[in-house]
Design a binder for these strands. Structure first.
Lengths: 218, 218
DNA sequence: GCGACTTTGTTCCTGCGTTCACAAGCGGTT
DNA sequence: AACCGCTTGTGAACGCAGGAACAAAGTCGC
């Protein structure tokens, strides 16, 4: 049953996804072998940390030689579950939603959008990447028909919570939220938050702090 | 000179941005007072952690009462540097770039895009949010004219590094990269990486791990 | 066949982030 | 004016992630 996989830290999982991307690029370029140092610099991490990350999936390199690109790629892909294609639904086909629906990076990583939804009647019926935008009323139907497990929210903030409620009611267990609000959901539902403006604000703060020591004010 | 601000942890800065957003919403809703518990649940964090975050900017609450919404909002805004409007340039006006350029959340947080750039001649001249897309040749000119300090990369991965080089050469010190590649830049340049597909992959892994214990394979 | 070099896998350690728990302080009430 | 309840702010402990150094192992050269 549960084999030699106690648990992989979340931070490691995020980096494994990066390694997988780099390895895929190397394999397409014809490379058959990599060292941890080279792979680490391509991924932007520390070589020792990379080896520690890889150690979570058991020994998969050859000492004195390095890692076989194709083997390691398949190994990581299997652990991350990229092999099985995952059905996702996307709610909110605005600028960001359209960008997400058309982002090629998802398709090549085992994710396929099986339903694009929007509440605005004007958007319903539009074709995005060859797929029609559906009305929210069809949500449950599509989720059950396609066995989708992941929902992506790209709506305005004020409707995100109600969309989240509908997604959980439809049976989805994983939700990725791009709306700038904290969502409340049942404990068995994983909610991950991505706030684009927060990243920009952290960057601005670091720049301001390094650029000049400003006084905190009276 | 350096007043009572030794340094604020990066994780705290990211959360301060979230608190600022929540507080702005509360102020618009007419609220004048909040407790740490309420603010924490609205932001999706632990109350004690919130208070510790706030302690980095000195005492700013009243014991037994809570925090004054407007005062705390202004305090955080000043620390994060939201008061001064920051000029940003955006390179790569594809689906994602268009979404970023039109995202209202940036403007209300002190960020304004002063230049939209794309290498494709077909895109140059298009109006995005009332602003024309410019050719890459005008990059240095716009950066120096507007004193922009932040660059956002939303290009395909294969040109991201060269765009990064041009941005640093133009004098930008902070770069936010949405392209799925690790960028190399001089040490004095802050580079932050946002990979949308990584978030989705972590979510899928967590769901797979919890949903069923899958064997690691032979 | 043996030695030395290269590279992985692991272990230790340091530092940070998070959480819990308590003391201090302020407002309201009697 | 004094007491009581509520909330903040801070101190300490726990757990985790990151980095560096070391040992194991396999290959190449002689």
């Amino acid at each position: 049953m549960s084999s030699s996989r106690p648990r992989i830290p979340e931070a490691t999982v995020a980096r494994l996804a990066v390694y997988l991307r780099v390895l895929t690029g190397l394999a397409d370029g014809g490379r058959s072998n990599v060292s941890s140092g080279e792979l680490a610099s391509a991924a932007g991490v520390n070589p020792a940390g990379l080896r520690k990350d890889l150690s979570h999936l058991g020994p998969c390199g050859v000492r004195g030689v390095g890692y076989e690109v194709a083997t390691l790629r398949d190994r990581i892909a299997r652990v991350l579950g990229v092999e099985r294609s995952r059905a996702c639904v996307l709610v909110g086909i605005g600028n960001l939603g359209t960008a997400l629906a058309g982002y090629a990076g998802f398709g090549s990583r085992g994710f396929r959008f099986v339903g694009l939804f929007d509440a605005a009647p004007a958007r319903v019926g539009q074709l995005i990447g060859g797929q029609p935008v559906r009305p929210m009323a069809e949500l449950d139907e599509v989720v059950t028909a396609t066995a989708a497990t992941i929902g992506v929210i790209a709506t305005p903030a004020d409707v995100a919570q109600s969309v989240c409620d509908r997604l959980t009611a439809a049976g989805l267990r994983s939700i990725l939220n791009f709306a700038p609000v904290a969502l409340s959901a049942p404990a068995e539902v994983d909610v991950r938050q991505v706030d684009l403006s927060v990243e920009l604000q952290v960057l601005a703060f670091l720049g301001q702090q390094r650029g000049a020591t400003v006084e905190v004010g009276a």
